[in-house]
Simulated assay, not measured.
Amino acid sequence: MAGDRRSEVRRVLVITLILNLLVMAIKAVVGWATGSLSLLADALHSVTDSANNVLGLVANHFASPEPDREHPYGHQKFDAVGALGIAAFLGIACFEILSGAVGRLFSEESHAVNISPSQLWILLAVLGVNIFVAYYERRVGRRVGSALLVADAKHTMSDVWITMMVIAGLIGVWLGNRWNVPQLQLLDLVLAFPVALLVFRSGWEVIEENLPWLVDRMAIAPEQIKAIAMSVPGVVNCHAIASRGMIGRQVFIEMHMVVEAEDVETAHDITEAVEAELEKRYNPARILIHVEPPDYESSRITYDGRPSEGGGGSLGSEK
Rank of each mutant, 00 (worst) to 15 (best):
I115Y: 01
L19N: 00
A87T: 04
A285F: 04
G172W: 01
K319H: 09
A285R: 10
H239I: 05
L184W: 05
L84W: 01
Y282W: 09
I287Q: 07
S243H: 09
S118G: 12
G248S: 14
F106C: 02
M218W: 00
E137S: 04
D188H: 02
I97N: 10
L184N: 01
I92W: 11
P222D: 13
E66F: 04
N20M: 15
P293Y: 03
W32Y: 11
R178P: 00
A33M: 14
W32C: 11
N283L: 11
S46P: 02
L19W: 00
R142C: 04
L37H: 06
H155Y: 03
N52T: 02
I287F: 08
L288H: 11
Y282H: 03
L98R: 14
A93G: 13
N130H: 13
E208I: 04
A147L: 04
V150T: 14
V47D: 12
G312Y: 01
G82H: 01
L189T: 03
S7P: 06
P222K: 10
R69C: 08
E309K: 15
S38R: 07
V30L: 11
W213R: 11
R5I: 15
P222Q: 13
V113K: 05
V126G: 02
I228Y: 06
A242R: 15
L17V: 01
R300F: 10
V291T: 15
A192M: 04
T156H: 01
N177K: 07
